[in-house]
Design a protein around this nucleic acid. Sequence first.
DNA 1: GTGAAAGCGCTAACAT
DNA 2: ATGTTAGCGCTTTCAC
Lengths: 351, 351
Amino acid sequence: MSTRQRSGATSSDVAALAGVSQSAVSRAFTPGSSLAEEKRLRIVEAAKKLNYVPNSIARSLTTRRSNIVAVILGNTANPFYLQVLEAFILRLQGQGRQVLTFTVPNGGDSDEAILRVLRYQVDGVILTSAQLSTRMVSLCHDRGIPVVLFNRYIPGSDASGVRCANAEGGRLIAEAFLAAGARTFAMIHGDPKGTTSQDRARGFVDKLAEAGIARSAITSLEGHSVYDGAFNAVSRHYRDGKAKLPDAIFGINDIMAMGAIDALGQRFGLKVPDDVMIGGFDDIAEGRRFPYRLTTVRQPIDTMVEKALDILHLDEPLRPIQPGIDVQVPGRLIWRQSIPAPRSRTPDGAA
Amino acid sequence: MSTRQRSGATSSDVAALAGVSQSAVSRAFTPGSSLAEEKRLRIVEAAKKLNYVPNSIARSLTTRRSNIVAVILGNTANPFYLQVLEAFILRLQGQGRQVLTFTVPNGGDSDEAILRVLRYQVDGVILTSAQLSTRMVSLCHDRGIPVVLFNRYIPGSDASGVRCANAEGGRLIAEAFLAAGARTFAMIHGDPKGTTSQDRARGFVDKLAEAGIARSAITSLEGHSVYDGAFNAVSRHYRDGKAKLPDAIFGINDIMAMGAIDALGQRFGLKVPDDVMIGGFDDIAEGRRFPYRLTTVRQPIDTMVEKALDILHLDEPLRPIQPGIDVQVPGRLIWRQSIPAPRSRTPDGAA
DNA sequence: GTGAAAGCGCTAACAT
DNA sequence: ATGTTAGCGCTTTCAC
């Protein structure tokens, strides 16, 4: 039956009860500030009695640091980015920081989200799988808020970012297909404007070209980064023998590779890898499992998250923001059963 | 090359440029406050010129409202709760509110998260699939911060909550199994301390009892709410014909039902529903798809999210917190292929 | 309708 | 080591 007015005890209340100054209370809750141990104890006790909790909002106002980091998510339909979100939350929580989470519609831009973020004086912004105008990046940087792009980059912008070595990853899948004897190919693209999809496709095509595969032997399908998109694209394109089935299909991400597998199986009764081989990208949990057992390129989420936070350097707020950092982390090919492994490889890609 | 010091223009800067008082600027950005239109325009223009963005932190300090809502997530391994998170974010974003996201280890309690939340003067707390001590609930309520539990309740606490009618859902699955002719059963439990799992199991067992099924004809397995848990439990329990296979298995949530299906298929070459029928709960996207095509109880996420926000009544902060509200939203049985449908039903549960 | 002034709860010099 | 003081950027009476 409590009313929504009261806001709990303040440091002054605690100070009064403990018989010290208000700043002493502040110090008692600021690690590393000088305060007699005896006094600190008395304060902590008084605080406990009053259920005092320091007000971070007030603190932020003076320190200009909120201990809040914004994470902006595009494409929440891809479990990979949810995994990424979780990794950020876990890490940041461990550092005593909070995560303000935003989502933007798939393919939409995050400018509006950024504007809201700015109001909250966040200490940093992480942008995942979403577009961002360079103007917004400057807006953040001008205020001393570092921005880091996750698996994305804006050519010609001074936004920093970390990403998987997507082109190289695309090459890895191409190599795997070639090693398994494939000669005709299809690939299912994600967001056509997204650099991630483009880079993976480019690496894939380049490697194939080096092996003497003509571009005309590679069909392009649009899957829009989602399961249904890939499912439908495959269903439509190969319906009634309308188009000849390739030896191998590269899903630019796992969720689309899964959609492709299901379309093949459900629509045409085709088995992977016996009838068609499939490669993916990301290594999401769903793809690791039976019945998919996807051969894929694993993105090392933890490493990428760590590097992203390094770029933010939240612990040294005074260090100037370094523009234009572009960290690439190599992916690793994980052999499972959606591509027949050459004899020299063992399943599950043990190193 | 910007430094991390500067914080952007303040309302005073804007006021100076526009030749008005600082409070006028404040009013210009507060909908519904009285200000001459001509003046407002001048202010907005000046603001734009300075890239002024109101500081919500400062605003919160005076208004005691942050426009931030905390969402605490347990069990992020279950895609269902990620979907719930997304639903909350979308809705709250639409109201101009931000979401502070926390995760707590599966089965752990959220008391620490709550303590952090209190510092930020959040306007409300949503707790999903995690434990919470009643002491923390009072702490929040004493400060006027409403708490709502999502799919969970704390018996004897005055925390409010919304949940799916879990027991009734369990009954629905039992009915489906019975209609399909099953006479022996297993169920895979989730978090044994969680009310959600308990309620679903109870409803399931009760309905079966009414149909004359002895409790001894129902095997209990522990799946710990996760895919692997269910996969392993099924693999172990039925290994080498150690135990006799039941006619039907109820996965207390979809992700475990999926684990069970895969264990059956991969370990024992068993087909669903031909050899064993399987029922789930939640209706997550992954379970809807081929090859699972899970018959399950759909939780109406949007309705539940809406009711949860109603309980928070964020728009009327002065209205006292109503303790002990317990909203139950009925689930709906969705027929797919993991339970053979009686003739009178059509697949995909068209109403 | 509009400005002046008093805080919101805290931190950070600055004294002592 | 500790108290005093001056803000942080905003909202909100209170006069006018």
